[in-house]
Amino acid sequence: MDEHAGGPVPHAQVRVDLSAIRDNVRELNIRTGAAEVMAVVKADAYGHGLVPAARAAQAGGATWLGTAVLGEALALRAAGVTGRLMAWLCAPGERWADALAADVDVSASAPWAVAEIAAAARETGRTARLHLKVDTGLGRGGAPRAEWTTLVDTALKAQADGLVNVVGLWSHFAIADAPEHPVNTAQVAAFRAALAAAEARGARPEVRHLANSAATLMAPQSHFDLVRTGLATYGLSPVPDAVRPDEVGLRPAMSVRARLALVKRVPAGHGVSYGHFYVTDRETTLALVPLGYADGVPRHGSGGDGGPGAPVLVGGRIRQVAGRVCMDQFVVDVGDDDVRAGDEVVLFGDAAGEPTAQDWARACRTISYEIVTRFAPRLPRTYVGEEPQR
Rank of each mutant, 00 (worst) to 15 (best):
E3Y: 06
E3V: 11
E3F: 06
P8H: 02
V9Y: 00
P10I: 07
H11P: 08
V16E: 02
D23H: 13
N24K: 07
E27M: 09
T32C: 12
A35W: 07
V37P: 09
V40S: 03
A43E: 03
H48A: 14
A54N: 12
G60M: 08
G66H: 09
A68M: 09
G83F: 07
L85K: 09
L85C: 12
L85F: 07
P92R: 06
G93S: 04
E94H: 12
W96R: 13
D98K: 08
D98V: 04
L100I: 12
A101Q: 13
A102K: 11
D103K: 13
V104T: 11
V106D: 11
A108R: 03
A110D: 15
A110S: 13
A115G: 03
E116C: 10
I117N: 02
V134D: 00
G137F: 05
G141K: 06
G141F: 10
G142T: 12
R145F: 04
E147K: 10
D153S: 07
T154K: 00
K157Q: 14
Q159W: 00
A160F: 03
A160R: 14
V164K: 04
V166R: 05
L169D: 10
W170M: 15
S171Q: 08
H172K: 08
I175D: 08
A176P: 05
A178V: 14
H181D: 15
R192C: 11
A193K: 08
L195D: 10
L195P: 02
A196N: 09
R204N: 13
E206A: 12
L210I: 14
N212H: 12
A214D: 12
T216F: 01
T216I: 05
Q221K: 07
S222N: 09
D225A: 12
T229Q: 10
G230I: 08
A232P: 01
T233I: 04
V239N: 09
D241P: 06
A242N: 03
R244G: 09
P245G: 11
E247R: 05
V248Q: 05
P252W: 04
S255M: 02
L262E: 15
V263T: 00
H270S: 14
F277I: 15
V279I: 15
D281H: 05
T285P: 02
P290H: 03
Y293E: 11
Y293M: 10
A294C: 03
G301P: 04
G301T: 07
S302L: 05
G306P: 02
G309P: 07
G309V: 03
A310Q: 05
A310F: 02
V314Y: 00
G315R: 00
G316S: 11
I318Q: 14
Q320P: 04
V321N: 04
A322T: 14
G323Q: 00
C326S: 15
C326A: 15
G342C: 03
V346A: 00
V346Y: 01
D350I: 13
A351T: 13
A352H: 12
E354S: 04
P355I: 06
T356G: 03
Q358I: 10
W360P: 09
C364L: 08
R365Y: 10
I367G: 02
S368R: 04
I371Q: 08
P380Q: 10
P380S: 11
R381L: 15
